[in-house]
C-alpha cells in the first residue's frame, strides 16, 4: 500500500513541475492564481503543524502540561530571529528535552 501512495505522490509532484513545460499548458497563468499560490506553503504547513503541537493522542487539544507548546513557542522565536532551519530544530528539541527533564 505505502509503495502505491509513494509512487502516486511522486507522479503528482512531477506533474506539478512539468505541467507548464508541456505543450498543452496555457502560455500565461491568470494573475489570481499567482496571488493565491503565494499563500500555499504557509497555509498547508501551518495546518499540519498546529494540531501536531496542540493535540495529544487520546486526549485531544491540550494546553496545560503540554510540553510541546512552550517548546514550539521557543522554536518560533528562534525561527523569527535566526531564520535558520537547523537552529530552530536544535533549540526546539533541546527545549523539549530540558522541560521533560525538569518536569518529570
Amino acid at each position: 500500500m505505502i509503495w502505491n501512495v509513494m509512487i502516486f505522490c511522486g507522479i503528482l509532484t512531477f506533474a506539478t513541475r512539468f505541467v507548464m513545460l508541456s505543450e498543452v499548458a496555457p502560455r500565461e497563468l491568470p494573475r489570481w492564481m499567482y496571488d493565491a499560490m503565494g499563500f500555499v506553503p504557509i497555509a498547508v504547513l501551518t495546518a499540519i503543524l498546529v494540531p501536531n503541537v496542540l493535540i495529544m493522542p487520546e486526549e485531544g487539544v491540550t494546553v496545560s502540561g503540554n510540553l510541546r507548546l512552550p517548546s514550539a513557542i521557543v522554536a518560533l522565536s528562534v525561527a523569527i530571529l535566526t531564520r535558520s532551519v537547523m537552529a530552530t530544530i536544535i533549540i526546539g528539541i533541546a527545549t523539549l528535552f530540558c522541560l521533560d527533564w525538569f518536569v518529570f
Binding site: V85, T88, D100
Partner: peptide
C-alpha cells in the same frame, strides 16, 4: 521525541515566509 522535529521544521519554514499582513 524525534517526531517533534516535524512541527519544528514547519515552524522554521513558515516563520520567515510571513512578510505581510495577508501572510
Amino acid at each position: 521525541p524525534l517526531d517533534f522535529v516535524i512541527p519544528l521544521t514547519f515552524i522554521a519554514l513558515v516563520a520567515p515566509a510571513i512578510r505581510q499582513r495577508a501572510d
